[in-house]
């Protein structure tokens, strides 16, 4: 464990907590893409298949349970909670996220660390996470006024993977044979997808005006 990875995990945890705060306290999911939440639930479900077979540390297992529990409960809230589901605008959240799942699955079958079910599922989760934010970014472009919590949620979610890139650089230089092209390339693509969001997020923060993404 290094400071970059711990900061990354804490940033990721913070993004989940901000989203849960928004949904649980103001009972609203306005501006939140259910499709991105469903993709993330699938990412964690396919990545943490080893949660009961490979014990790494209490920290690792605890965080996995938190990410699994929060992602599925957020999906449940938006789909089934009588008040929250009313603030979900189905007509705006139109990204065909199933078109993301198939290519990621095919790629995982071709490019993986070992051709076993768990490893293919793990690679699938890495590729899927790289593109999981797309429905959310498309929705943000359509959302006229993005509320602060939604903006912070997306920012933290993008920042966590950027911190992981620093973690991979650190581990490359401090650990022998630490090379993981699958996570490195996917993590870089994932972070680059946030590039224009980060730009507009900092602009709105610097000029102290409402966050607005150009359509």
């Amino acid at each position: 464990m290094n400071i970059f990875r711990l900061a990354g995990d804490m940033t990721h945890l913070a993004s989940v907590l901000v989203l849960l705060l928004k949904i649980h306290t103001i009972k609203s999911c306005a501006g939140i893409s259910l499709k991105t939440q469903e993709l993330y639930a699938l990412v964690f479900a396919t990545r943490y298949l080893d949660i009961f077979t490979d014990f790494i540390s209490l920290y690792n297992t605890t965080m996995k349970l938190i990410f699994l529990g929060s992602s599925f409960s957020i999906v449940w809230y938006i789909r089934n909670h009588k008040i929250v589901s009313r603030s979900y605008d189905k007509s705006q959240d139109t990204f065909r996220h199933y078109f993301l799942i198939i290519p990621c699955l095919l790629l995982a079958l071709l490019v993986n660390e070992k051709f076993t079910f768990k490893e293919v599922m793990w690679a699938f989760s890495i590729y899927l996470e790289a593109v999981a934010i797309l429905p959310q970014l498309v929705l943000l472009q359509r959302t006229r006024n993005i509320d602060n919590l939604t903006g912070q949620y997306v920012f933290l979610l993008g920042a966590y993977r950027a911190l992981y890139i620093l973690n991979w650089i650190y581990r490359y230089f401090t650990e022998t044979h630490y090379v993981h092209w699958i996570t490195w390339v996917s993590g870089l693509v994932q972070t680059l997808l946030y590039a224009d969001f980060f730009y507009y997020y900092f602009e709105s923060w610097k000029n102290n005006k409402k966050l607005q993404l150009p359509a």
Binding site: R5, D9, H12, R47, D50, N60, F67, E113, W122, Y164
Partner: peptide, 10 residues
């Protein structure tokens, strides 16, 4: 198990 077989990152 070798180190790189178990994914130690979240």
């Amino acid at each position: 198990k070798e180190e790189n077989e178990v994914h130690d990152e979240l």
